[in-house]
Design a binder for these strands. Structure first.
Lengths: 234, 234
DNA sequence: GGAACGTTTCGGCCCCCGCCGAACCGTGCC
DNA sequence: GGCACGGTTCGGCGGGGGCCGAAACGTTCC
C-alpha cells in the first residue's frame, strides 16, 4: 500500500533529480532545484509539495524563499540504497549525463570526483582515502559490518569531537555506515562518525565548498591535518 | 536516472503487492501472484517481465509454470526499508487491507501475527521473542548496531549451525540485521544469523508452514527446543 | 490425438500525471 | 507607491502506462 506510494514519489525523473541534488545535505530553494532539473518553477513547486507531504523532504520558509532539504539521514540512506542498486544492464550507476559540450559541467564533475559531500559526510577520492586510512589505523574495523573501535573513540576524543548521544543506540543513527561511492566505485564512510568527520573538517576549514554544489576543496590547513592525523596524502 | 527507473518498478500497486508477497522468500508462480493481487494473468505476466528485467526478481521456468522469487537478500532489505518508511499520516504501515467480511483473511493475518517468515528469517511475535531472548542471553549485542557476540558464535557452533563463509565480510551479507516487524512494531532479527536460525527451525521441524503463505506453526518439538535453547515460552 | 491449463502477446481503452503558460500573491528593494 | 522577483494555483494539453479480453503457444495429462 504505502510501498507503492513512497516509490511513486521517487519514480519521477524530476523528483528523483531533486532528491539526488539534495543528497549534498544542504537546503536548496525551489528555484534552484527547478533550474537544476530544467523544469518550470510551477512544476517544481508541485513536485516539492508532494515530496514534503510524503515525508521525504522538510521545508523552511524564509521571506519569499522556500528552502527544502532531505527530511533526515534515513531518507538520505534510503535514496543512496536505491540509487546504488545495480542495474542489470550496467553494473553500477554513473554520474549525471555528461551533457556533451559543456565544459563547466565537466570541470564540476571532475571537482566532485576529487572531493565532495554525500549528504553529510565525505565522498569522492577524498572520502575513500579517509576510509582506507581509518581502517589501516584501526580506528574502524570492518568485521561484521563496520564499527568504531575503542582506539577510534579515543582518537575522536583527542580531536575534541563528540558523537550525538543517541548514535549507535537502538533507534538512533548507526555510528559507522559504508556508502558506495559513485565515482570511485568503492566505499566511503557515512553514519554518525562520517558526519562528525565531515562537520569537523568544514568547521575547522580543512575543506571548503566550491561554489554552491557538493564539490569540496581541501585547504592547505586541511592538507596538513589529514597528513598528521590520518597519514592521508592526496 | 536509474533511481527513477528502479522506484518506478515499485511504484505500481500491483507490482508492489507482488514484491510484498514475495517477501516470504519463496518462489511463487505467475498465476498465484495474479490471483493474490486480483489482476488478470496477462497483466501479471507483463509486470513480472518488467520486474525481472529490472533485476528485482529472478525466474525459473518449470514446465508450464513460471516461478519467480526475489533476486536476493539485498532486494528483500530494500523493499523492507521502503515498506517500513514511516508515512507522515500514519506512523507505521499496517498489514494489507482487512478486506471486510473475509474470515479466511482474518485468520490468516492472525496466524501471521503469531509467527511467519519475513523473506528468509523469523517474524511476528515469535520473531521478536527470539530477538529478545538472544539479546537477553548475550548472544547478540545491540551497541553500535546489532552484532553477534563470541558467546553467540559458540552457541551457534554447539547447535551445529554454520553461517555462510562470506557473511559479515565486506560485500557479503551482514551477520545480524534488525528488521522492523509490521505487526509487532518492534524489531526482529534478519541477516545471515536470522536466516540461519529460520532455516534450522524449518529443517529440524521446530516450525512448519501453514498452507502456502508465510504463516508458521510452532511444533511441539519446536516449543521444547525454543524453551531449552533460548528460554522462549510462547 | 485431444482437452485442460498456465502463460504470453497483442490491440485497444482509459485514466493518471507530468508539463507548461498565464495569472496571482507575497516579500523585498528602490 | 512601484517594481522586480520567487513562489503558487489553475486550466489545459499530451503521453505513458496499467488494465482487460481475445487469441495463440507450450506443456501436461488422459
Amino acid at each position: 500500500m504505502s510501498l507503492a506510494h513512497l516509490a511513486g514519489l521517487l519514480a519521477d525523473p524530476t523528483r528523483a533529480a531533486f532528491c539526488m541534488a539534495l543528497l549534498d545535505g544542504r537546503a536548496w530553494t525551489a528555484g534552484e532545484l527547478a533550474r537544476h532539473a530544467r523544469v518550470a518553477p510551477s512544476t517544481a513547486s508541485e513536485h516539492l509539495s508532494r515530496l514534503i507531504a510524503g515525508g521525504l523532504l522538510a521545508e523552511e520558509r524564509q521571506g519569499r524563499h522556500r528552502y527544502v532539504r532531505l527530511a533526515g539521514p534515513e531518507v538520505a540512506t534510503l535514496i543512496e540504497d536505491l540509487a546504488s542498486f545495480p542495474t542489470p544492464a550496467e553494473p553500477t550507476d554513473r554520474p549525471p549525463a555528461p551533457a556533451p559540450g559543456s565544459l563547466r559541467e565537466a570541470t564540476r564533475t571532475s571537482a566532485e570526483a576529487r572531493a565532495r559531500t554525500c549528504y553529510d559526510h565525505l565522498a569522492g577520492r577524498l572520502g575513500v582515502s579517509v576510509r582506507d586510512a581509518v581502517l589501516a589505523r584501526g580506528l574502524v574495523t570492518d568485521e561484521d559490518g563496520p564499527a568504531l573501535t575503542d582506539r577510534g573513540r579515543s582518537w575522536l576524543a583527542e580531536l575534541g569531537v563528540e558523537l550525538p548521544p543517541r548514535a549507535g543506540r537502538s533507534g538512533g543513527r548507526p555510528v559507522v555506515r559504508t556508502c558506495l561511492d559513485w565515482t570511485e566505485r568503492r566505499s566511503h564512510l557515512g553514519g554518525a562518525f562520517g558526519a562528525a568527520l565531515c562537520r569537523t573538517a568544514l568547521d575547522r576549514a580543512w575543506v571548503e565548498r566550491i561554489g554552491s554544489g557538493r564539490a569540496l576543496r581541501v585547504t592547505p590547513d586541511g592538507d596538513r591535518a589529514l597528513r598528521e592525523l590520518l597519514g592521508v596524502a592526496l
